[in-house]
Design a protein around this nucleic acid. Sequence first.
DNA 1: CTTCTAAATAGATAGGTATCGAAATAGGTG
DNA 2: CACCTATTTCGATACCTATCTATTTAGAAG
Lengths: 192, 192
Amino acid sequence: MTQEELNVLLAFFKALSDESRLKMVGLLSQREYGVGELAAILGLKEPTVSHHLARLKELDLVRMRADGNNRYYVLNRETLDAMNKRLFNSEQIAALGPEIDGDEYAQKVFADYFENGRFKQLPTKQKKFLVILRWIAAKFEPGIQYTEKQVNEMLKQYVDDYASVRRELIDFHYLCRANDGALYWVNEGRTD
Amino acid sequence: MTQEELNVLLAFFKALSDESRLKMVGLLSQREYGVGELAAILGLKEPTVSHHLARLKELDLVRMRADGNNRYYVLNRETLDAMNKRLFNSEQIAALGPEIDGDEYAQKVFADYFENGRFKQLPTKQKKFLVILRWIAAKFEPGIQYTEKQVNEMLKQYVDDYASVRRELIDFHYLCRANDGALYWVNEGRTD
DNA sequence: CTTCTAAATAGATAGGTATCGAAATAGGTG
DNA sequence: CACCTATTTCGATACCTATCTATTTAGAAG
């Protein structure tokens, strides 16, 4: 699951994790309501209701119809159903987890070398080393250009010998480097 | 839907409306993890992970197994499924809305007399008046004892002549009053 | 008993957001 | 045009909570 997809789900849960909005969804599932009407029923001021409706509308959870000065809102059941289907099946739930390398082997390598958010040391066996290199490479966002300083900062989070790792990332074609050596970016065309 | 039930759903959405917890749910759906392990993968400190796990555990969304100093957590899929079934059907969604009196008549009364969160005036026709009285009565929580001052504060939110309304609530047996007149509470045994 | 380690708890801080009042927008009506 | 009304936008405030560090608990191992 990409960060983008996760953000959508997150936004969906955030949208429904407010008492006022949850009640509004309930009301708007029955019939359309005007803003003032909702404000009266919920005991809120118009600006507050307007704010909540805007948040729901952002996610396409409600539809709006204008009639003169009044705007009538109603629940968009399709979006709700889509979210429901999208989330509540095993694969999707599992996919919520960040992508640690999937296979048992990689998990073992992690268990052995990863501690307190850092790699205490790097394995000498190339296969194990590549598991870690791949994981680090994935921390760089595709399409972004990084200065050498930024790359170093990134790597220091995870390893002591950041200079070696930076070199290895280039050697194994996980990162590309500009001719003058000043900029780095993810090699999106790489295939294993 | 009671306030209690709504709170449960609200808590559920709040629980999943955090990026870290959402990722944790994904991971814990695949296998059990120790606290430190999760902290390493998510790039968080142990206390933070501990905090999130506690929140998930409160709702019975995860189960915990202790082994020596380590505690292993795993997703409780049943709770997730139950929440899913519970929420995503039409009746339940509709029930999220606060209980405005259901029938057309009551809605009309509201439209006529309720404005900006208050009743601008009270209808003289008893039938209409009772619609409003019932609605106000529902604002008091069953099982709670209110002082007269508290009752007045409550009523002032909605009407000008709070003293009359307080008397009517007693006369129509929506509220009970202690013999000394100091305490009020909802008459749970009332039948229309 | 002392030491080490994993996790939970306490306390502090910072960022997010629900809410409001005031002001701006825009449609309707004369 | 001027006025009224419904809604949105803006700016400020207050509460909530995710996160951290420091401390405490409690199991395991010398």
